[in-house]
Amino acid sequence: MTQKQPHHSIADNYQQVLASIRSQEDRFHRPADSVHLLTVSKTHDADKVRQAYVAGARDFGENYVQEALDKITALAQSPQPLNDATWHFIGPIQSNKTRDIAGEFAWVHSVDRLKIAQRLNDQRPDNLPPLNVCVQVNLSNEDSKSGVPLDAAESLCASIAAMPRLQLRGLMAIPAPCAEHEQQRKAFQPLHAAFKELQQRHPTMDTLSIGMSNDFAAAIAEGSTMIRVGTAIFGARS
């Protein structure tokens, strides 16, 4: 008879990731609790999201609009609604999806062109607070990746800062995969420098959304304030 692998619950995994983030804060002399964990729930069902919520997760990241809307609706209607969950859109944005994103999400991390920012601003319902926005930067200039070149981020940030229904919060990036810690740090450094410079001009900028399961130690070393982790919490994607 084959032995079953030990099974770690979503709650255990969530607490482990959180403990690891806290230990890296300490290692790199960052203030305690200064790095937030964004639980990436894309492709995972509402039941798994609820398990993470019970474990303490409050911020959830989604890539696909329709899948996210289905989950948000299901979790709002359930016997114990997730009233204080915050939903973050972190995927590429199509123009025909901006109305749903503007209406249902509190954060968008992946704004990379003026047209999309303008649509989100125009479609944000008046009864909701301004939509929190991060500008996505393409650090490695990969054609397959979304994001503005680093030298174009300043102009897009200035335009967003002037929009009344958007709140400019920071920068987001997904660098090219790399296994070596020092190389990972090197990739994040120009973004961190740009972020600090932009903060001088835009005081609402407080979020550097970098770091995922494989590189979050390097991201914390380079100033990340929000780590996006899915697989290490939920297991392999469905």
Rank of each mutant, 00 (worst) to 15 (best):
H8L: 07
V229W: 04
C178I: 09
R185T: 05
A217G: 13
G230E: 01
P92S: 14
D112V: 03
N141P: 01
G211N: 08
K115Q: 15
N63F: 06
L139C: 11
V137P: 01
H7M: 08
K97C: 09
Q118G: 05
Q80K: 13
H36T: 13
A187Q: 14
M163R: 07
F60R: 08
M212C: 05
F89L: 11
Q167C: 15
K186L: 14
A158I: 03
V135E: 03
G223N: 00
Q167A: 14
A187K: 11
T39I: 02
A68L: 08
D215M: 05
P164L: 10
D126W: 03
C178S: 12
D12T: 13
M226N: 09
I10A: 05
R169A: 05
S95N: 11
G61S: 13
S146I: 04
C178A: 10
D45S: 14
D47W: 09
K48E: 14
T204M: 10
L69T: 03
S224K: 04
K145T: 03
K4V: 04
I233V: 12
I233K: 04
D143R: 11
V135W: 02
D122E: 14
L128I: 03
A194L: 15
Q80M: 04
N96K: 04
R237I: 05
E142W: 04
Q3C: 09
N214C: 00
E222M: 13
E142G: 06
P79K: 03
T73I: 10
H202Q: 04
S34E: 08
S110W: 02
I160Q: 00
V49L: 13
M172L: 07
Q51R: 14
P92F: 11
V54G: 04
D206H: 13
A19Y: 01
A218T: 00
Q94T: 03
G56L: 07
D59I: 09
Q199I: 08
Q51T: 11
T204D: 15
E104Q: 15
V40R: 01
K196V: 05
A117I: 06
R169F: 07
I116C: 06
P92N: 13
L198W: 12
I72F: 13
S238H: 13
P190W: 01
S20I: 01
L191P: 00
A102Q: 01
Q136Y: 04
T2S: 12
S140P: 02
Q80F: 12
F195A: 03
V133E: 01
H7K: 08
E197D: 12
H202F: 15
Q24L: 05
H36P: 00
T98Q: 08
P203W: 11
C134Q: 12
P130T: 09
A76F: 06
A153E: 09
A179H: 05
H29N: 14
A46M: 10
L139S: 02
L75I: 07
F105M: 09
H29Q: 15
D143H: 05
R50D: 12
N132K: 15
V17F: 07
A102D: 05
A11W: 00
R201Y: 14
C157D: 06
H8V: 06
I160P: 01
P125V: 03
R228T: 06
R99D: 13
G103P: 06
N138F: 02
S144P: 00
Q16H: 12
H109C: 10
A85S: 15
D112H: 11
V35F: 05
S146P: 03
K196M: 10
R50K: 14
P129E: 11
S23H: 13
V40N: 08
G235S: 11
V65K: 01
P130M: 05
Q15Y: 02
